[in-house]
Write a protein that binds this DNA or RNA. Structure first.
Lengths: 237, 237
DNA sequence: ACCCGTCGGCACGCTAGCGTACACAACTCG
DNA sequence: CGAGTTGTGTACGCTAGCGTGCCGACGGGT
């Protein structure tokens, strides 16, 4: 099991906080396991916990008209879930589904909200994170509209790899199709193309990233832009 | 010319604020005209002013790879521009273009940021507004991906009508095509369809909304959902 | 060792929307 | 009043992706 202090130093929003803030945080959070497929929030649910993933990662999914689904953001060790709480609100807007099993730090909503006014550094980090997420959302909208499945798939695999911190992912075509909002057959073709170019290999739900830089080249620039945006926004004093 | 106090009572984020907060606001803002096509922010610009539209409205546009453009949100009397400032940041992420001429309240960035800590009611409103915008972004991404041009056009006209507060809009097909990220010819077909159904009429850049409720039916549900979301989030205590 | 559920390859016709290009009509301005 | 500009209708072939359905192959469980 991962200790709380180790967890706090792993999540990028929490690492490097002043030790007083880390201590305050540690006092009210716990390390919990997240299982693959677990639903953290349903749309319109009241948000009872904030989560900071450590080695797990979670997809935020829009549900349209009860059938169409589309992943719009992803949160792993670089982010958090329960963003609404930072805005003083407690209604979840999106479906949050655990997409990579692992552990996360969990804080009850009320304690989290009580913590914010007394933890200025944390608060600032979270505001920055909100800014980043808003940009990711805006860029995603354009990316999803303009870019082809193959490019989007490559981007998505890279984003997932970053959060899973492993070049070995467990994803079926069916699942990828739901995330990208396309047909399963569409994913099959795109994945075949990537495989034939020697960038990935896969076999019944196990995807291995063989050539990361090749995959970056195959992805739309949205991937590199996203990374740059995160780095920039977080680095600015 | 519109007076500052009348302006403050027109923008929905500012109306109904405690009078002390309105007074503090009034002390540092001014009413400025916004001309059609005026660019308020370029991506990566430093944000020098926050704007609260009164009878003008502004599109926030993502620019991808220097050519593809797509409107992702719109702000009128129900919103504001310069959201980054609320998050303690001063970099504009999107292109903000005035799409309906009119006036807006304008506040220098530093004064705006100084105002926030001392105006809790305003601050809360703005956080709510951020929450709404994030949801609009997420929903837009899905809407743009799944819905047809005709539905999206209908939705877009309704959103514009709400902000222009007039059933008479000035928009060319060319402009609409840029907003929706599609071909001009695509807009022509969709607009013809709406016109033949008796919902709108247009003539060389002048669009008149004839049957608002028919248009709501022709639009994807995203429009009604958006409205409901705004009302809900703003109404919650 | 088998069975059956899961996963992936593939093929069919179909549609929305693309890129492009041309023509005409309506305004604008000299 | 004539010339140019702007806005709209339309047409062409083309592509990405859709919906659907089938089949084979793999592999875990009994």
């Amino acid at each position: 099991m991962i200790s709380i202090s180790h967890a706090i130093n792993t999540n990028r929003l929490l690492a490097d906080l002043p030790s007083a803030e880390q201590a305050a945080l540690a006092a009210c959070c716990e390390v919990v396991p997240l299982a693959f497929g677990e639903v953290l929030y349903q749309p319109t649910d009241t948000v009872t916990y904030a989560y900071f993933p450590i080695n797990s990662f979670v997809s935020n999914i829009v549900i349209l008209n009860n059938d169409s689904r589309l992943e719009v953001t992803m949160a792993g060790l670089e982010g958090m879930l329960g963003i609404a709480l930072v805005l003083g609100f407690n209604k979840a807007p999106l479906l949050a589904v655990v997409q990579g099993a692992g552990v996360a730090l969990r804080i009850p909503a009320s304690q989290f909200q009580a913590l914010l006014p007394t933890s200025p550094a944390l608060h600032q980090r979270l505001m920055r994170y909100l800014y980043i997420v808003m940009n990711q959302l805006a860029n995603s909208a354009a990316c999803i509209h303009f870019h082809r499945i193959e490019e989007r798939l490559a981007r998505w695999l890279l984003m997932t790899q970053d959060r899973a911190q492993s070049d070995h992912l467990q994803l079926t075509h069916e699942f990828l199709a739901m995330m990208l909002g396309v047909r399963r057959a569409g994913i099959t073709l795109a994945a075949l193309a990537l495989q034939q170019r020697g960038l990935i290999s896969y076999h019944r739900g196990d995807i291995i990233i063989l050539d990361r830089s090749g995959l970056v080249a195959a992805a739309c620039q949205c991937y590199t832009q996203d990374c740059a945006l995160y780095a920039n926004a977080m680095a600015t004093p």
